[in-house]
Structures are given as structure tokens and as C-alpha cells.
Design a protein around this nucleic acid. Structure first.
Lengths: 340, 340
DNA sequence: GCATTAAGCACAATCGTTTATGCTTTGGAC
DNA sequence: GTCCAAAGCATAAACGATTGTGCTTAATGC
């Protein structure tokens, strides 16, 4: 910048202001500065600028993990929206550990990020590590997995609606004894999905049966094991299963096949997340899609709103996206006539 | 830091030096400083430090995409190794577009990263955008997909060995007419895998047949289409297929099933990447594992070496990891007696 | 007792920006 | 002609750390 100033015979003040389009600089001067800046291939030092203004153009993101389809797709949406707004994105994984989540938040604060986007780790139960973020006036947006208590800005899927759609679909297919593989109810997403399941049953006047709800961490193995339990129920096996995650429903499918049962003839299946592997199992798995990219974009939008009004009094803002059921073979009525 | 200095009645110099364990500070003073720093919960401003030293603790990573298993796992390894060394990681996606790749590199340079780790986009053919990185003295490490020309530091898989193992395995199973679904040969990984395939054939004295090698972008659809072409070959269908990617081999599998052919009885299949879905297809897919996490860690180690000797004359360093074949149902000899 | 040396620390410049403040100039209103 | 406002720009102080240089003090050698 000093070079620019010397070359043009003006002060660095003028150069800086010209580049940031300040009102007190004449249009003629601005033009000259911009032109020379281009010519000399001037690269602003974002560090210095961030230091001086106490604010960088970095956006921090904390997710539990980046395997599977959901989080990469959300990050994708975040990156897209962020880069449009001139922000770069730092991604950190908590590996479902609150300790790592805490460290990640620290790291991001040290990197002087302009904002933090978080999806909680499974075992996060207290939220003090986010107080520091707030107290520094840094915008904080939660997405998908949000704190159970307290007022926060967040983007979530309407998980209840997702569970409701999934279960209603099974009911509409004539299934009546529908089991549910639920995730840790501490996480909003899982309790909501379960709620949707219960609501759908209620709509059909079917009383919920606690024996048909099995809680787990929703891995493939968990799903298989849960299915084993369900098949062993003395009251008889369910005629359908709705799992709050696709991995679990995959496990269930594998277990059913292992036991020689047919899907969907004997047991219909519906999962959650619309993972890409749902299209390659046999039969393909019906699943609830989560609007991943929109979620990422919405989170960034929310962040930008918060960043635009730094001193505004806190008003809780929540964006709710609507899920969409993708119906595939695992839940469709079996053909009326002779199926192998 | 000023607070610390005032409180202790020493200068900021002393505080700074005590914190960075400088030799000219007495052990007693160091202790006092460290203790108070902890007590006051002092958080160093990395920006300021980066500005002053012209070097940050950020590591930039550019990958083509983050779906699937490979890149997330590599990033995982990078994060792990980087955080151990006190670095944070910024991840950018090029979406297989050289333009975006260029922009990502610019972004990272603006963020004043300490180093850049790159896996090339599919259509990157010229490498000028990396010259700027070098000329600024910023360590640059390529991994997996590396430039075809020029001297670079890189971590790669021994893709040739992977192709060789895969093809040798098929040959050992008695297959003789082995097709290959190849990726864009411009990318080192794909040309190497093909080379391994050819080398294995040569070992068995089998002349390569150009009709059995089909080039594509290796999507599921590409794989299915390639399989269709292969099945229509007048010279007769192949008895095995080795694809340079798992998506393509999945497409091939689906096409074979659609045409009523049995795997592995009629056609044996081997893929590349050991994607997680290889375990859920029927039959499960044999595939070459790429040591993803090790690759990430190795890339970081290489970066650290380069960063440690900033002014050292350039010596090309290449780390080569050995792949490992995971054998599953899609390539195993059919049981000698009656299989449905 | 004096010179020499090393240890321990402070001063002040520096990294590349931003920005509060204030100065000069110009044009217009009266 | 005087006064005022606005436009256009410069001066210099930040932001929060690092670091070359030099000062003081005490220990050592002779």
C-alpha cells in the first residue's frame, strides 16, 4: 500500500479509503488508485485488516463428522453462500466429543473468525463453551443439532414433520404395527423424529407401544441388533420399521435378509437422511431427505443477518426447513400377485 | 498482554519472551508470567502474531470434492496431524473445476496460510496458479492427484501397485479376459492404475486388448454404460472387470444384474477406493484401499518439513504409500458346487 | 579494585491496515 | 468581501504481538 501511495503522490489514508470506497475520496482519485492497484497487482493483507478492525472474513464451522452425505452437503451449501459473501470457511470436526467441540471453538476464536456455525456433538449437554463466543459479540448459529435449552439462533429441519411423513406413508400402505428405531432423545433431531412418529400413529388412532421403540446410537450394527430384538418380541414382529437414520435402517434390512424375511412384503422399511446408499440396496430404501444444501445456505444467511446488526438486542431467530420423503421399494405395497 | 505486563511490573517484551520460552528470560520470571497468564485466562491474538511474523498457523487444503469416503478420510488425517502440530485447517473444494481451484488458492493466500495442500481438479492442465504460492515461499504439497509435469513435493498412493494387485488377483482366480474401466488418463492416479493393470496382464503373458479398456469419468452411469458396451463386444464378454473407481464398478454391477448375469460367476468385479458401500452391495465388492488417513498425515508431515527449512534449496520429495486389496464376494471363485 | 562477561530485562521499531481528527481548498450564499 | 459548508486529503495513533539493540546488574578473573 505504501508503494501505491508513493507512486501516486498521495497518503496511505487516501489509498486505503479509495480501495474501500470511502465517501471522502473524490471519484477521480478513486479511479487512479484502483487502476494502479490493479497494475501493481496489489494484494491486501487480510491479516492486518482483520487485526485492525477486529474482524476477519473467516467463518468457522463445527460439525460432528464429515462422513456420509449430510454434513458434506451442508458444508457445501455453507461454502457456496459464504464465498458469495466474501467469506472463507474453516471446517472442524468434533467427532461427537464435547471436549473436541470445546477445543474447536477455542481454535476458531483464536483464528479470529467472524462467526461460528455449529452442529452439536452427540454428548454435548452443557453449553458454556459457547458463552465466550457470545460475549465476544461473535455471531453464533446452530444448525440441525441444536441446544435443548436456552435461546439460540438456529436453522433446523422440521424433523417432526419428517417423522410424521415417514410414518404416515407406512400407515397409508396398510401397515399397523410400526416399530421405531430412535436415536438419543437428548438430541433435538431424534426426539422430534420420534414425536412425528407418535403423532402419525395418533392420527390413525393407534396407541403407541413402548416395546416397539428402541433407542440406540443408530449405527448399522445398532440397527441390526434392534431388528433382532424386534423380531423376537413375543407379541409378534412388526410389519414396518421407521428408523431415525439410514445406517440403522440398513442394519435392519441386513438382519431381515439374514433371517430370511422379505422386504417390503414381510416388513416395510423407512429411513432418514436419504443417504446415497439408499439407492443401491435391494430393495432400495425409502428415506426422508433433509435439504442439506439449503440448510447450509440458510445458516450463512442467518449469520450474515446477525453480523450486519452487531449491537442489536438479541431476538431468537429460527429457520425451519421442510423435509421431503423419497419413496422407494422398501416401503411400497407388495405387488398383489405372486412375488418371489 | 499489556495487562500481564502491568500486573507483574515487567515489560511486554518480557511477557512475550516468557510465553515463547525465550532464552533470555529467567526461569523465575517465566513461571510468574505463565502463572498469571493462566489466571487471567490470557488468549494470544494469533492474528497479531501472524502479522508480525509473516506466518500464520493456518493450513489450507484444496480438494476436488468431499463426498464419498476418500477425501473426508484424508482430511481427517490432515486435521489430526495438523492439530497436533498446532495448526488449524481450512478446507476448500474445487468441484473439479480449475477456475475454482485457482480462486481457492487465491483465497488461501489472502488468508495468509502457512502452507497449502492440494489434490488437483480433474481438468487442471496448467499449473501457473501455484507459481505464486512458491514464489511467496509458502510450502506447497500435492497429494493423490498431482501435476503431470514439473518437480513437486507430493504424497501419492502407489496406484500402479493397486492396479497390479487387483488385476493379479483376478488372474489368480482364473480369469483371463479382463476388462478395465479407466479414468481420464491425464490424471496420474488413473494412468497409474491402468499401468498396473497392463503390467499384471503382461506378467501372465496376456496381450492387452484395447477393446477391453474403456475410458470415462467413472460415475455410476459411466460404469453401467461401459458395462453395456463390454457385453456387446462381438469378441464375447469379459469374464472380469477391474475399474479404477468404486462408483464405476457399482454401475457395472447394476448393469450385469439388469441383464441377468451373475457376479462373480459370469463376471468378476474389482473396484478401487474401498468405499463404504462396497460392503453393502450384493455381492460385496472387492476393492483397493487407499490408506486415506495415512495420506493426510504424510502430507502434513511433508508440509512441516518444508516449513522447517524455508530457505533450503528445492529437493523434490515424494512419499509413496502402498495400497491394500480388500477381497470380497464380487471377485471370489464361485463355489465349485451348485450355486443359485 | 577494575575490566570483562553474561544474564535479565526494557525501549522502541515494526508488521500492513484502519480511522479519528484536523487541515486546506473550493464554491456558494449573503 | 466575509463567512460557512463541504469536499478532499494528510497526520498520526491505534490493533497486539515480535525482536534487534542496548542498558543495568551481578558474577568472575586478574
Amino acid at each position: 500500500m505504501a508503494d501505491l501511495a508513493r507512486e501516486l503522490g498521495v497518503s496511505m489514508t487516501t489509498v486505503s479509503r479509495a480501495l474501500s470506497d470511502h465517501h471522502s475520496i473524490g471519484p477521480a482519485t478513486k479511479q487512479r488508485v484502483l487502476k494502479l492497484a490493479k497494475k501493481l497487482n496489489y494484494q491486501p493483507n487480510h491479516l492486518a485488516s482483520a487485526l485492525r478492525r477486529g474482524q476477519s472474513r473467516l467463518l468457522g464451522v463445527v460439525v460432528p463428522y464429515i462422513e456420509g452425505k449430510f454434513f458434506p452437503a451442508v458444508i457445501q451449501g455453507i461454502e457456496h453462500a459464504a464465498s458469495k459473501a466474501g467469506f472463507s470457511v474453516i471446517v472442524c470436526q468434533s467427532h461427537e466429543e464435547v471436549q473436541l467441540e470445546r477445543r474447536n471453538v477455542e481454535t476458531l476464536l483464536h483464528a479470529q473468525v467472524a462467526g461460528i456455525l455449529v452442529s452439536l456433538a452427540r454428548n454435548t449437554q452443557e453449553y458454556q463453551h459457547f458463552d465466550k463466543v457470545r460475549s465476544r459479540g461473535i455471531p453464533l448459529v446452530f444448525f440441525d443439532r441444536i441446544p435443548g435449552a436456552g435461546q439460540v439462533d438456529a436453522v433446523v429441519l422440521n424433523d417432526q414433520a419428517g417423522g410424521f411423513q415417514a410414518t404416515s406413508h407406512l400407515l397409508a400402505q396398510g401397515r399397523r404395527r410400526i416399530a421405531h428405531l430412535a436415536g438419543p432423545p437428548r438430541l433435538n433431531i431424534y426426539s422430534q423424529r420420534r414425536q412425528g412418529y407418535l403423532d402419525a400413529l395418533a392420527t390413525y388412532g393407534i396407541p403407541p407401544d413402548d416395546d416397539l421403540i428402541i433407542y440406540s446410537d443408530m449405527t448399522v450394527d445398532d440397527g441390526a441388533q434392534a431388528m433382532r430384538q424386534l423380531l423376537a418380541r413375543p407379541a409378534g414382529r412388526p410389519d414396518a420399521v421407521f428408523a431415525a437414520g439410514d445406517s440403522a435402517i440398513l442394519g435392519a434390512l441386513q438382519e431381515l435378509k439374514a433371517q430370511g424375511l422379505r422386504v417390503p412384503d414381510d416388513v416395510a422399511l423407512v429411513g432418514f437422511s436419504n443417504e446415497s446408499f439408499t439407492a443401491i440396496t435391494e430393495p432400495q430404501l425409502t428415506s426422508v431427505d433433509q435439504r442439506c444444501e439449503e440448510m447450509g445456505q440458510a445458516a450463512v444467511r442467518l449469520f450474515l443477518e446477525l453480523a450486519a446488526a452487531p449491537e442489536a438486542p438479541f431476538v431468537q431467530r429460527q429457520v425451519v426447513l421442510e423435509p421431503k420423503l423419497f419413496i422407494r421399494g422398501s416401503s411400497l405395497l407388495p405387488a398383489p400377485v405372486g412375488v418371489g
